[in-house]
Amino acid sequence: MPPVFRFAPSPNGLLHLGHAYSALLNFDRAREAGGRLLLRIEDIDATRCRPEFEAAIYEDIAWLGIAWETPVRRQSEHLAEYRTALEKLSALGLVYPAFESRAEIARLVTAREADGPWPRDPDGAPLYPGHAKSLTDDERARLIASGAPYALRLDMAAACGVAGLSWNELGEGPGGERGTVPARPETWGDVILARKETPTSYHLSVVVDDALQGVSEVVRGQDLFHATSVHRLLQALLGLPQPAYRHHGLIRDGEGRKLSKSDRSTGLRELRAAGMTPAGIRQLVGLG
């Protein structure tokens, strides 16, 4: 079977040099390995994803000279598949609803930190500090029936009964990690798997998509290196195959910050309008 790669942008803004780098790396790896390149549109965030941004993705990566297989998988068209995976985790007793708003969680963290630093996940966000796991079934049912918003969280302490998880790192982590990397999903706490209005999250949908599409090598930025621990755990819990991972360095601005879709100076559209060529983009990202 030929190896399968994927480029999976979100249509919540215009692509920049960082996206071009990741897309070109996937394209180059697929060609070198005699493999297939898929394009996936990660559009589960209905409040930020827009059709014009999706159309711009197709135009920009085609301009770069990248070819991909069709049809394109759009996550918004596959919510039932994510719901099925969530139901499987729920049947294992690993999912619970949490009803605190972001503001309430922030207040809880502030209160906890009166006694010392509260633990953070690898991205720097505080771990979930609430007590939703201790609610009775009747209390949960009453809150849900009242229409209260909620997030469905993974009971990480219960889920981490899976032992010995790791992944094969073909690239390099931010700390120089290579080869067999041990997974540490517990550092993320009780991550969100879905919300009341959306039956999935990035963590859940990405592992389901990669499995259903037969992705064998995930090429993506080092900003997602630590999230691989959560993905390996979900793959193990759901009985999904494990791809190899190749994390790459990030393209940063002059001050060393990760590029943003709002940074017009590195946007592909602006660079193209200024006369930049696809070959020039390759030079800018170090793939000349």
Rank of each mutant, 00 (worst) to 15 (best):
L14Q: 12
A80I: 08
S262C: 14
F99Q: 02
P117W: 03
E32N: 01
G288H: 06
R282I: 05
G34S: 03
G249I: 08
P119W: 13
A62Q: 10
A125H: 01
P182A: 12
A125S: 02
R257G: 01
E197K: 07
A236S: 09
L193K: 02
S10T: 14
V95E: 01
D45K: 12
S260H: 09
L284K: 14
N26I: 13
H231Y: 11
A125N: 02
E104F: 12
R112Y: 02
L271G: 00
A67P: 06
V207A: 03
I61E: 00
R257F: 03
R282C: 04
N168A: 10
H231K: 01
M276T: 13
C160Q: 04
R269H: 02
V206G: 01
G124D: 01
P3Y: 13
E87L: 15
F7Q: 00
G65I: 09
I57R: 03
L39S: 06
A125P: 00
E32R: 10
T180E: 04
Y150C: 10
P122L: 07
P51N: 10
L14I: 15
L108I: 15
G214Q: 09
G175S: 07
S134Q: 14
R269N: 00
T47S: 10
A98P: 05
S166D: 02
G147P: 03
R50E: 08
L37A: 08
S134N: 13
R50M: 08
G13H: 12
A157I: 07
R178Y: 04
T187N: 02
Q235W: 09
G239Q: 00
Q75G: 13
A98F: 12
E177M: 03
R252K: 13
Y58T: 14
F53W: 11
D190M: 09
V162G: 05
A227C: 13
L212T: 14
T266C: 08
V215M: 04
R184H: 10
R257W: 00
H231R: 05
L15H: 01
S229V: 00
L127T: 15
A125V: 11
T180I: 11
G164F: 02
G116P: 02
I61A: 03
A194F: 11
I57T: 14
E69C: 03
M1Y: 13
L259Y: 07
H248K: 05
G34R: 01
P199S: 14
F27P: 03
D190Q: 11
P243N: 13
L204C: 01
G249T: 06
T136Q: 04
A145R: 08
A62S: 13
S201A: 07
F5K: 10
D28Q: 05
V191K: 07
H231D: 00
L204E: 06
D223F: 10
S262W: 13
P129D: 03
E186Y: 04
G221F: 14
S216M: 04
M156E: 05
G93T: 15
G164T: 05
R40W: 14
E197M: 08
P9S: 09
P185L: 06
V72Y: 07
Q242L: 09
N12R: 06
V191Q: 01
G176K: 05
A67R: 09
R252N: 00
E172Y: 01
R74K: 11
I41T: 15
H226G: 02
L193R: 07
D121P: 11
A148V: 10
A148K: 11
